[in-house]
């Protein structure tokens, strides 16, 4: 089970080092601090919008989940500091996609 195989099933799970517990982001097989093996953490992750903009009428935003940051789509006009969760994610044509609300 990897971040990618979980994401392909529509599940967003945060990778962390099994040895030193550091969040490992972007997802890689080994921890960048201690080179220990990486596992996936469970839980409902709540993120915070750090910044946003809009292209062709669709908003996109930088969302922080602790040490993890992603660029995600969001349907309604966002605000900096707004709390959000992942409502849709996956892999499409080889690219990750994330949507928050």
């Amino acid at each position: 089970m990897t971040f990618e195989s979980e994401l392909a099933e529509g599940r967003f799970r945060i990778p962390e080092c099994a040895s030193c517990k550091k969040t490992v982001w972007p997802p890689t097989p080994y921890c960048s601090r201690c080179l220990g093996p990486v596992r996936l953490s469970d839980g409902d992750h709540t993120g915070t919008i750090a910044e946003f903009s809009r292209k062709d009428g669709e908003y996109f935003c930088m969302v922080e989940f602790g040490d993890v940051r992603i660029l995600a789509g969001i349907r309604d006009a966002p605000k900096v500091g707004q709390k959000v969760g992942i409502c849709r994610c996956g892999i499409s044509n080889g690219d990750y996609f994330f949507e928050v609300q």
Binding site: W25, P26, E51, F52, S53, I70, L71, V80, D95, Y96
Partner: peptide, 24 residues
């Protein structure tokens, strides 16, 4: 490689985040 950008990989997306953040 930078898949943490999700579907927003083109440079216009990071530039927009920088511009918005800098202006703010």
């Amino acid at each position: 490689w930078d898949r943490s950008r999700g579907g927003f990989k083109h440079p216009i997306f990071w530039a927009s985040i920088l511009a918005r953040s800098y202006k703010r």
